[in-house]
Nucleic acid binder design. Structure first.
Lengths: 218, 218
DNA sequence: ATTATTAGTGTCATAAGAACACTAAAGGAG
DNA sequence: CTCCTTTAGTGTTCTTATGACACTAATAAT
């Protein structure tokens, strides 16, 4: 019985939620798209295996990574009995993506427009999206998808991209402000229009909130 | 690489949340308590394996069962590389427990007073309790721990046992009533004091609520 | 100087949640 | 049969959280 890890890797690009898919170079499902993954090595913890695969596919390792679910239908892989332990990862656009990896065949796909996937990977991806949406509402995963300095508009765009709905700007900012987990910087960024103030996520403050049982309000 | 399922089986007895533990008859950890489990068979889905183990240990099969997490530390089992896919199950006191099974060495332990467990089972159990508490707040798992007919007092006791805090009777009943998922029966039960009306959980009504995105309010 | 574009800010109405105390129905004791 | 004990059952008020809503501010381009 073999055990593999498969990793649903999310990022945000141009305001849309995207997932990394690889094109399979060998059968089964040759030339079809799949979620990146690989076998767990004999002396490797599951999280380690997921981190290693993530590094091999994207070249990044300092990211949010969380185990998702284990899939074990005996017929899920035509090669034989392979149990998939799935993970999901969030990487922010300021990570240097794909630097010298075996990811030549990997590319980003908007989660709203995913083609047919190999194996049971459509199911895994659907599960990951659902989990991400839920987690967004009571954790700080949203910040993992942003560079370390960001504007409130960018933060709101992340929430809107994942939840697939518009949020009220004033209510959004009020709730973020109440949490007191952002440090306002004396820096501004201007693309077009009025420059926006930059903020930093202060993880330590969030830890204090968690200790008090306070969670995210979205 | 071997794959096992381990099942944290909860029930409520005398108003306290209990978990089923078995005494190991063979090394490693001989004579220590452990969460019931066993290996996944070559042609068996993970859920099937968990159901089978559950049936072997308790004799019941029509219960709430949910996959929890997969544990894969290479050193978690001294016999070699065994990956544990953990589940948690909820069984109600009106199921005929332990009818002719290999559970002669199985017994119920209050989750508040758990002794040292074999392997990494303490970790698995802690994870299961946490998940149960969270799920209680936005799903109907609470009803799975009760007989099909129950009083509102019993329902509240389940919530209080799992959440480990007292709830206000009137607020609790108001919130349950608003959900409209209970059918009041023309039956009453009297132990001591005024007889209490019996209710039944109507799963179909809950499904409608879910479709509308309404979840539990606790 | 005008226009276009995005950033930033406060109030009010409604809904949800928390706190709180008495009456009702039964059984058992005297 | 009266009263005492025990658990069931029921509404209101206050506080807090949420949702809806529109204008001014700062910059760049023309």
């Amino acid at each position: 019985m073999k055990v593999a890890v498969d990793i649903v890797i999310f990022t945000i690009q141009e305001g849309v939620l995207k997932v990394l898919l690889v094109k399979r170079r060998i059968p089964p499902f040759k030339d079809q798209l799949a979620i990146p993954g690989g076998f767990v090595l004999p002396d490797e913890d599951l999280d380690q295996a997921a981190l290693r695969e993530l590094r091999e596919e994207t070249g990044v390792s300092d990211v949010y990574l969380e185990q998702l679910y284990s899939f074990g239908d005996p017929k899920r892989d035509p090669r034989g009995r392979i149990i998939s332990i799935s993970y999901f990862a969030l990487i922010s656009p300021d990570h240097p993506l794909m630097a010298g990896t075996d990811a030549s065949e990997a590319s980003w796909w908007p989660v709203a427009q995913i083609p047919v996937l190999a194996f049971d990977h459509a199911k895994i991806l659907a599960y990951a999206v659902e989990r991400l949406r839920n987690k967004l509402e009571y954790t700080t995963v949203g910040f993992q998808l942003l560079p370390s300095k960001f504007t409130l508009g960018e933060l709101q765009a992340v929430y809107e991209a994942i939840l697939e709905k518009k949020l009220d700007k004033r209510n959004f900012r009020r709730k973020i402000a109440e949490l007191r987990i952002l440090k306002p910087l004396r820096e501004y960024r201007s693309d077009i229009g009025r420059p926006a103030q930059l903020f930093q996520f202060v993880a330590a403050r969030f830890e204090k909130l968690k200790d008090k049982g306070i969670v995210f309000p979205f």
